[in-house]
Design a protein around this nucleic acid. Structure first.
Lengths: 355, 355
DNA sequence: CTGCGTTCCGAAACCGGTTTCCGCAACAAA
DNA sequence: TTTGTTGCGGAAACCGGTTTCGGAACGCAG
């Protein structure tokens, strides 16, 4: 007790170790420690190592918001969810978030999420997050061909990465799954099973993936030497109800398809209902292949043959790409793709004759 | 351009307006502006208003990370998701996040999310987020009776709010849905339809809601003057597969139930499969009531009668409660409940005789 | 031995806020 | 008039970092 008074250190017991503590322990100034930690060239290799080691030993971690006040950067990724979006992305959200968070925290970044209920409020949300320094860049799920987010962020020179390829955005970094290849493979698989009349139900027309997947379908038909009947192509089906309607239309054609490729699993499950309504048994009278790998597909009767997408990996890669983008790398070089994984379950079977 | 050189203001065009700008515009010092903005008592009402108005006019928003360096608080809510959790919470996630984000941004707070894949790494994640000042408090979804998160955060004196009531956590704030009342109402509804042998399939035993919902079921049976057959009570069913197994067990009893109340929608959908496997038609031979309001329930055949929970509202309330908690309010006073909403669909029907 | 260029680090300003301390002016009481 | 109070706002330190600037120490050529 006596006269020695402890400097109060806030409520938490673990007195935070600051850059000055590290500097003091080494007999250096905090400016030297700062430059050593940030690999400035005017710090010798020897002291750089000495500082790094001491920082490690003392468990020193710079406060990102203390750095931000000078640098303007927070080491934080922004994600703005479109709340009014259709249901179909929701099951992915948990895994996608887990991936983003994992990719971010591996580099000691964090993930800040916000929700908006319209395009306008989404832009406003971007603006606020930027003004308040809450995010250094943004992850944009579900790239759209006319994407107001891309427009705004590009013109504001704010770093972003797209989940999905964008044809016209020049300086855009992205990560994407080769959905067109999956569609192509789906057709090939069905053709090998003997199907010749194959329908296609595409997803949301506003998304970048839609034209790609349709092209993949056509490519697959061409490869298999099958003619494309334009009457067997539906589009804009992202929900179960959409899929049911589209399936109904296809199955009431004069010469209905014996197999249907769907760009979205939910639509495929809608086709299940359309088939059930007409007394057709999926996996016997009608083959269906989906895309996405939603959990409901595995539980459906019969289990849905589909292409699964690793959304966790996508999130992780997107986080890392965005971090590199924020650090100034050329966006054109920050582009990655991967493939979906074919999972054969019970909704596909050899051709047994026309319906 | 001559000698007048613009002070570079970072990459963004909109030069940030700082507290000094506001002070300068009013002929005050920044300390006065700061105290005026924060309602210090030693600033006169007149200047307080003058400052507030000028801040508004100049569109001044203090940088939370600049404040944080002195105050230690970031105005940010933390949410750590348990990645390895069973699927059942995923469909809620989007709405829950939207609610949290809405509640947070209404007070100019933000939401920082991280993911962990085990209890240990979750605690470690808390620790890191606190050390780095990434969150001032946490939202804990799915309260458990033995909750390591509660233990850790309580002992570290970190503010948190639970989604779900916790019996033993003394200083805990929470928000919860009265699931027990829903269960009670479910029984009452079935009893009114003439059912006398009613089974119950409970959810995850580790969660706080499980004993409550069971008690609600018993209460409902007592109200209806029905005896509880302990053989018709199953527990720990949170997934579709769990529900199917539990349903199988119930339906193979010597004297099976004609109606089943499920604490979790997924389990109810599992009962659908158990029934289908035995040739029973839900909504005719067997009545089922679920709880949660998952979208799949509405699409099931027949559509599931259930209690829907407004997860968006829950998130919004939780965010506001946590903010008040961080500001120092008594946690015992920060407790709210609401009720689930009964939605009668096709899975319930009058009693027609034993199975 | 001087002069010069490097290498490397310390000193100090700075970022945008908060908070403590202090003093001035006005007013009331003596 | 003098002496306290009280109300109110300025001055300056501070938070934990980053960055600019300058100079000491050293090596090397002349």
């Amino acid at each position: 007790m006596g006269t020695t008074e402890e400097k109060p250190r806030g409520r938490d017991a673990g007195a935070r170790v600051t850059i000055s503590d590290v500097a003091g322990a080494l007999g250096l100034t905090k400016s030297t420690v700062s430059r050593a930690m940030n690999s400035y060239p005017d710090i010798s290799e020897a002291t750089r190592l000495r500082v790094r080691r001491m920082a490690e030993k003392m468990n020193y971690h710079p406060l990102s918001h203390a750095q931000a006040i000078k640098t303007g950067r927070t080491r934080s990724l922004g994600l703005v969810l479109q709340f009014s979006d259709h249901d179909s992305h929701r099951p992915f959200l948990a895994e996608f978030l887990a991936g983003l968070s994992a990719g971010a925290s591996a580099e000691h970044w964090t993930l800040t999420v916000a929700a908006a209920d319209s395009d306008a409020s989404m832009i406003e949300t971007f603006r606020e997050m930027l003004r308040d320094g809450k995010a250094d860049g943004f992850v944009l799920p579900r790239a759209m061909t006319e994407d107001p987010r891309v427009k705004f962020l590009s013109s504001a020179a704010v770093p972003f990465v797209l989940y999905g390829r964008h044809a016209t955005a020049k300086g855009a970094a992205w990560y994407d799954i080769l959905g067109e290849q999956a569609m192509q493979d789906a057709v090939a698989h069905l053709a090998k099973l003997g199907h010749r009349r194959i329908g296609f139900i595409n997803g949301g027309a506003q998304y970048c993936y839609a034209p790609l997947r349709l092209a993949g379908f056509r490519e697959g038909m061409r490869d298999a030497g099958l003619p494309v009947d334009e009457d067997l192509i539906e589009s804009n089906a992202v929900t179960l109800a959409d899929g049911e309607r589209a399936g109904d239309r296809l199955l009431t054609r004069p010469n209905p398809p014996t197999a249907i490729v769907c760009a979205v699993d939910f639509a495929a499950l809608g086709v299940y209902r359309a088939a059930a309504g007409r007394g057709l048994v999926i996996g016997r009278d009608l083959s269906v292949i989906g895309y996405d790998g939603i959990p409901e597909g595995a539980y459906a009767m019969p289990p849905l043959t589909t292409f699964t997408v690793d959304n966790r990996a996508a999130g992780e890669r997107l986080a890392k790409l965005l971090i590199r983008r924020v650090r100034g790398e050329d966006p054109e070089l920050l582009r990655e793709t991967t493939t979906a994984t074919f999972v054969e379950r019970g909704s596909t079977a050899p051709f047994r004759g026309s319906i």
